[in-house]
Nucleic acid binder design. Structure first.
Lengths: 343, 343
DNA sequence: GCATTTCTGAGGTACGTACCTCAAAATCAT
DNA sequence: ATGATTTTGAGGTACGTACCTCAGAAATGC
């Protein structure tokens, strides 16, 4: 059996009460005694039994995911994973809830954040684009004692808030490299479709994409980003227009999380099999398009990892620990037909 | 607060003792009563508190990883992950140890397995090639009450033992697709290097690779597999020989886990930058080769996932539960320079 | 050397579940 | 209806840690 607090007390030559004081950082212990206990911890290899600790604490971590109202396929898989995690973590004193209420209006988002209180929630994972309003509201939220992570959308390392998601610059670069290599010796123009270029995420992907293309694939010219604003009619119009104006388009990069509208419009406006087409995120739709060969590759982040990583980070912060940055790095996955797994 | 066994007893109209009997599958409860309790579980949403359960059980799961003696880079990263997991899971009543003692001799491996007893270990993850001796020893091990999973090496679904690893057929197919697409319009021969073609893993990768190549890239011809037998001198010789005999080699697929010897030999024998070269597994070496451009892509399985998945599966089996197949599927990762992450 | 403050020990209860025993109740077979 | 058997209830202890109180010991200031 592993050493317990009792063994630790004996080994350190102190009482259980003192061990408890040291372990939980309670005041009223001489530095000297603290050191003795810590040395004993090292010496006998004491490891706190988390199960027992949680049980004794009776602590319930209440975390909330705040997601946008809009969004179809990708958001749906994220929500699935949240629900899964919610069920799975319930046995570990974690109460995970989901609110799908964030609109594109930063003021509205800020207002929602301002209403969150530490009495009702211990931490939130926010999926909202960067904006000064949201940043301020987040800062105040943290000051009130609520833990916060930026989820999927946002900027790694820019703010004093953990970011859970991929490095979008690298994601764009990955897309650029694949598109270039898949096109082989072919030359021509590349269509880039985005919901909006107002978000940092899109800008970074585009930047990474362009960097690789200009440097290593000079025979390819990336067209200016076409913005759909999430409007189906506009999507069809602008994409049709692009193909009409540029008969020499040989590839397309759909850099938004929701690939469906753009890809459907693209198929209407041109022949997808004559081009190399890349999109983001694994959804039932992109998976089907990969299998049938319409999409050539998908750049994805694992939604399950995203969710679990957000939860782990919130939990670490709630315990006053630092999340393990290395473990929480979200990988950029490349999917082609062959590594999708069984259907 | 979440409902406890006490609440459940009240809700089901039975005593705590009966609830306990039902929850832990003890005998001496009428079917009718079992049903009543299960309905109450559904009704009030009872979830067993795993922390408390583990604490009460005082159960310690002792799992062991049995790895081969030989192997450099990939095995080293696997071992790192095992050590990490060992540390991380210690707080959850898991005692993970590592034995690096399996040789290529199936009889020796079988002998080691035959000496494992359920008094000293609850489950083992075995990384050893398929062989009748090992299969028999495994069967007897299971009969003695030790849980077993096949780790990395082996055959999914072939035996009544969980397999933790990628589908090697798909892995080979993924390599085939990437090689074909990266080569674009180029035609020529493709070198395939393997440590040995005696293992099922290698055969499957080769099969998947060939299937894609013949079907979708007829201008490429995959040469017969070159076997290195893990011998550096032989490796250099056979690879040099291949390039001498086939001046029209345009690509290479190194299908073994340990890419270093083959790739070094390849670089000696030819100009890697004129070819498309794929290898397996992410190691410090393959990572460096990707970054400098010698390797074009790496097909990998996440060692951390492998290890944790093995542990979860062993634990589920030890608890008499079925591992969640969907959660334990190991993904086939594609790595290029751009999605490696920061250096 | 005394009063004062700081530190430590002893002992307790609690968390939710597992597992045990023993007696009482319900059900069954005859 | 009787005895045998099965099912259930009541009550207990244990797991390892957190957190509480209170008394006593040790260190400190003067």
């Amino acid at each position: 059996m592993r050493p317990t607090t009792k063994d630790l007390a004996k080994a350190a030559g102190v009482s259980l009460a003192t061990v408890d004081r040291v372990l939980n950082g309670r005041p009223g212990v001489r530095k000297q005694t603290v050191k003795a206990v810590n040395e004993a911890i090292e010496r006998i290899g004491f490891i706190r039994n988390q199960s027992a600790a949680n049980l004794a604490r009776g602590r319930l971590y209440r975390f909330q995911f705040l997601l946008p109202e809009t969004g179809e396929d990708f958001l749906a898989t994220v929500i699935e994973r949240i629900e899964e995690a919610s069920a799975a973590f319930r046995a570990e004193s974690l109460d995970i809830t989901l609110r799908r209420s964030l609109s594109n209006d930063p003021h509205a988002t800020a207002r929602i954040l301002s209403r969150l209180s530490p009495e009702r929630v211990d931490g939130v994972a926010i999926m909202a684009p960067e904006s000064p309003q949201v940043r301020d509201a987040t800062t105040r939220l943290i000051e009130r004692g609520v833990q916060v992570v930026q989820f999927v959308s946002g900027q790694p390392g820019l703010r004093p808030v953990d970011f859970i998601g991929v490095d979008n610059n690298s994601a764009g670069a990955t897309a650029g490299r694949l598109l270039g290599r898949f096109l082989g010796a072919r030359a021509g123009k590349v269509l880039v479709v985005s919901e909006t270029m107002n978000s940092l995420d899109s800008v970074e992907r585009r930047l990474g994409f362009d960097t690789v293309l200009t440097k290593d694939f000079p025979r390819l010219t990336a067209l200016p980003s076409v913005e759909t604003y999430g409007d189906p009619a506009r999507t069809r119009a602008v994409i049709a227009n692009s193909y009409a104006n540029h008969p020499d388009i040989v590839g397309a990069y759909l850099l938004s999380s929701e690939a469906r509208p753009a890809l459907m419009a693209l198929c209407e406006a041109s022949d997808p099999s004559a081009q190399v087409i890349l999109a983001h995120e694994r959804t039932a739709f992109t998976e089907a398009m990969l299998r049938e060969g319409t999409l050539d590759a998908v750049i994805a982040q694992n939604p399950g990892h995203l969710v679990r990583s957000a939860i782990r980070s919130l939990r670490a912060r709630s315990d006053g620990r630092e999340p393990l940055a290395s473990q929480e790095r979200i990988r950029i996955e490349i999917l082609i037909r062959e590594n999708l797994g069984p259907a």
